[in-house]
Design a protein around this nucleic acid. Structure first.
Lengths: 372, 372
DNA sequence: GTCGCTTGTGCAATCGTTAGCACAGAAATT
DNA sequence: AATTTCTGTGCTAACGATTGCACAAGCGAC
């Protein structure tokens, strides 16, 4: 018949289009509205050049059809996906679970979604690093110490901004963290003021800057105050590691045993306390224990841990804002930045209180004001 | 000058292409290889029709240029994004943190990435539901009880397969969970055999099927065994909720106080134990406490909780496989399925052991074999 | 020596969205 | 009244990848 009249030579596609009628597209809206696709696009984006009536009509049509823009197609044109890669640290530490929750919430508030690249201990796999490019991630939020330098290099090469939270940036990228040093100093001051002299530090994973800063800050403060160097006990990043450290401490002869312990993370401190108590020691009677992070679980019985609470929400918010600024600014426009936020001292029942009823007054460590 | 010779009328684009030289595309590879883009595409996908030499040459070129396909562009054509939406339950329960870790790992092993839609308590926001469509999520993994029926309807309307893990499907979608009833029965049998007669159940969030099933399974088993109806104590999904329940129980006059407690989640059981001990009661001396989930923290001192361990890894793996099957099968091809996996009883030190040295023999609850 | 078959490539359309430019008609200016 | 501004819209070319079809060789067979 009219062979010239059969340009749609892809019946399969046509069928697909029919089946796809479930999903409204700009083209389908344009057809129903009797206007061009570009007009629909502009109307939906509130372009001032489109007349109010047309805009309203298209908006109504879109709402009726349940139209939702396809971000993937948009990304192809605009180059921005709205996706933020998340590399999450060891989730056996509840701190990261809390961080996760904030990150999801705050990212959503900024119109972004999180692409979960990695969770847990260990370095991220190569395939995962590829995903970062494949999905055109706009930026990357990292809370793991294990971001391989290869992955970092790939981000750098592709202008993917990188922001570390609770970690310092090793190669490139900005970082947001709690003022670990100041927090550790405040705790050291607290313990010294309470009369403790034989101190110990349960360290974290050697690879994490956070743990190192805390341990160093604590020791240096003690040294500056003229105290003896604290006993260093190897810890880790889990309750089990803290427990093991606590067992070793409890096994020391009473004369050598420290009377106050700073564990560089709350989850560690919980393990330490459990080990001490299992060994028959009381906390804070025989030994004071303090931690740092401010996880919810440590604030409850039977720990009621004295700690420095990280301003988690603010940290995540600032991290996201830095990331978005880096994304906006294009290339390496935004200079790499390091943000330090003050933590808030939370007094629990896991350590002896200073004899003075005025806590911390006169201490070298300034009293920490409420975070922010 | 030669106006006719200026077809590239988009200098901005051209500049963008130059800047984008950092990213290799099929087109750029094709140009360098001196072949058509389609040839490159086929060569990289190992299409048999491309000659081995060309294929090798292009593969070498791609590797050299660090080419990575743009999944977003591919999605536009193929309709599959490789993205799986994740709606995560209350992460204050470490169980979900462990689940998260498994989900990321196993999804990556299957070539999928997780788009984090929601984490934490509360229902998911409408904007989040939209993201599900906007990013063309292939399927959705849900561990929250709070997936709004609206969100479920949207998934159904758009043929997005839905799989619940640790939850039953309310409206549509498949579900993978532990055999909560069988697990609870095993625990009930254990407690009865240990001679306990005054039992209590600390319940979960009323909205979660998991908690209900466990409580019901426990009570019905006890009733069938001729025991008194357990005391029901309102719990929740957190350590705090368990603690509050424990306090209420501890406050009962000794004559009315249960001598064994089943908390429907480990995190709850931990709270219960802490409250009992704070009230001066010993566990398991005065009261036996058992939980269910198998979280790592509960297996450690000072809890050493007797519990039923959920086969988490298998659960997530099966969930993902169901999801992928649903994605493969297209529309609602795959029938909705409910998978129940047996948990594994883990004997801790939080409850009295049966007098008989042969545990559970002759009990109505069959001994639970190792999961799967 | 042409036919038909296999094998390897290229062309062009398509997915859904955006944006540069052209262009129509109305309003404002000379 | 004729020309210059605006205002709205439409056309079309991208973004990057995939794929149906067309087409050019190469080769054995009749």
């Amino acid at each position: 018949m009219d062979d010239a009249d059969t340009p749609p030579r892809r019946p399969a596609r046509a069928a697909g289009a029919r089946a796809g009628s479930g999903r409204a597209t700009i083209a389908s809206l344009a057809q129903r509205a009797g206007v061009a696709a570009s007009t629909v696009s502009r109307a939906l984006r509130d372009d001032a050049r489109i007349s109010p009536e047309v805009r309203a009509r298209i908006a109504a049509l879109a709402a009726e059809a349940g139209y939702t823009p396809d971000i993937l197609a948009r990304t192809l044109v605009l180059g921005r996906s709205g996706l933020i890669g998340l590399v999450l640290g060891p989730v056996e530490n509840p701190f990261y679970a809390e961080l996760l929750q904030q990150a999801v919430r705050l990212a959503a508030a900024r119109g972004c979604r999180l692409l979960l690249l990695h969770a847990g201990p260990g370095p991220i796999e190569d395939a995962t690093t590829e995903a970062l490019l494949q999905y055109r991630v706009d930026g990357c939020l990292v809370t793991s110490a294990e971001l391989s330098s290869k992955a970092a290099a790939i981000c750098a090469a592709n202008n993917v901004p990188l922001v570390m939270i609770n970690r310092v940036a090793r190669e490139h990228g900005s970082a947001v963290s709690c003022d670990n040093r100041a927090g550790a100093e405040a705790l050291a001051g607290l313990l010294l003021q309470a009369g403790h002299r034989r101190l110990a530090v349960v360290t974290g994973n050697a690879a994490t800057s956070t743990g190192r800063e805390r341990a160093e800050g604590f020791c240096q403060f003690v040294a500056a105050a003229g105290g003896d160097l604290p006993l260093l006990v190897t810890g880790g990043a889990s309750h089990a590691a803290g427990f093991a450290a606590g067992q070793r401490i409890a096994a020391l002869p009473a004369a050598e045993r420290p009377d106050a312990i700073f564990a560089v993370a709350d989850i560690l401190a919980m393990g330490v306390i459990d080990a001490l108590r299992e060994a028959g020691l009381t906390v804070p009677g025989d030994v004071s224990v303090v931690g740092m992070d401010g996880i919810a679980l440590a604030d409850r019985p039977p720990y009621r841990l004295t700690t420095v609470v990280q301003p988690l929400e603010v940290m995540v918010a600032r991290g996201l804002d830095l990331l978005l600024a880096g994304i906006e600014g294009g290339a390496g426009a935004a200079p790499q930045e390091r943000v330090l936020l003050r933590g808030r001292l939370r007094l629990g029942a896991s350590c002896r209180l200073p004899e003075s009823s005025l806590p911390l007054i006169g201490s070298t460590a300034q009293a920490l004001p409420a975070a922010e």
